[in-house]
Amino acid sequence: MEVYYGFNYATSGWMILQSLPLLLSPSIIVTMLSPEVREATPLEIYFARSAGFTALTLGLITVLLTGSIPLATSFSETSSNLEDPTAPYALPTLVITTAYHAFVSFYCYTMWNETGNFGFGISTIVGTALAASGVWCVLFATSDGRISRKTGADKRTSGFPFKNVEADKRKSGKKGL
């Protein structure tokens, strides 16, 4: 579960990091994206700030909906009184944010190939890493698994192609008693 919470915090941090330039200096962002040097129009500043607020909101909502920050309806409730420590929207939010990172990293990769811009390359690397982490969480962190209470090992593993000699010794030793 540490990877799952790490993915949620990394997703939130990356979205908040992307929102800060849009919120703090939209005219600089518009000037950098424009082929000619000119002042940003009020409409461009509005759209840049709206995109910044959207990314900031989605980053914060990701952490809240996935249960990374436990929420209670009142201050008197403790975490022991809650039925489920994870949020009911954890898996759908995980899938949506993973798809988001995959789409954005694909877009940044195509723009990086077209323009060779360093910023698109960094976004491709970070987005791909987050998308891969999200896929890992969807595949492995969402199931309860079959963990043995005695040994702590996963019961779904097999001995193929290697034999587990220590486990065979314990099994044969117990049968002889």
Rank of each mutant, 00 (worst) to 15 (best):
E2R: 07
V3L: 10
G6D: 00
Y9W: 13
A10S: 14
G13L: 11
W14K: 02
W14Q: 10
L17H: 02
Q18A: 11
S19D: 04
L20I: 14
P21Y: 03
P21A: 05
L23W: 07
L24Y: 12
I28Q: 13
I29E: 00
T31L: 14
M32W: 10
L33I: 01
S34L: 10
S34K: 12
E36N: 07
R38Y: 06
R38D: 02
E39W: 05
P42W: 15
Y46D: 04
F47V: 02
A48W: 00
S50T: 14
S50K: 10
S50D: 06
G52T: 02
F53A: 15
F53R: 12
T54S: 14
L56A: 10
L58K: 07
G59C: 07
L60R: 01
L65W: 08
G67N: 08
G67T: 10
G67L: 04
G67I: 09
S68H: 04
P70L: 13
P70Q: 13
A72L: 02
F75Q: 05
E77F: 01
T78E: 06
S79Y: 05
N81P: 00
N81K: 01
L82S: 09
E83H: 12
E83P: 01
P85L: 15
T86N: 08
P88Y: 04
Y89E: 06
Y89T: 15
Y89V: 05
Y89D: 07
A90Y: 00
L91F: 01
T93E: 01
L94K: 12
I96P: 01
I96R: 05
A99R: 07
H101M: 10
F103R: 00
F103V: 15
F103C: 14
V104I: 13
S105F: 14
S105Y: 13
Y109T: 11
T110D: 11
T110E: 11
W112C: 12
N113F: 06
E114Y: 06
G116M: 08
G119K: 08
G121Y: 02
G121Q: 13
G121H: 07
G121C: 04
T124Q: 12
T128E: 00
T128M: 11
A129C: 12
A131Y: 03
S133C: 13
W136R: 08
C137V: 07
L139H: 01
L139P: 01
A141E: 15
S143V: 06
S143H: 15
S143A: 02
S148A: 08
K150Q: 10
K150F: 04
S158L: 06
F160I: 11
F162A: 09
N164P: 02
N164A: 04
E166R: 13
E166P: 01
A167R: 03
D168A: 15
D168Q: 08
K169C: 00
K171Y: 08
K175Q: 06
L177A: 06
L177P: 02
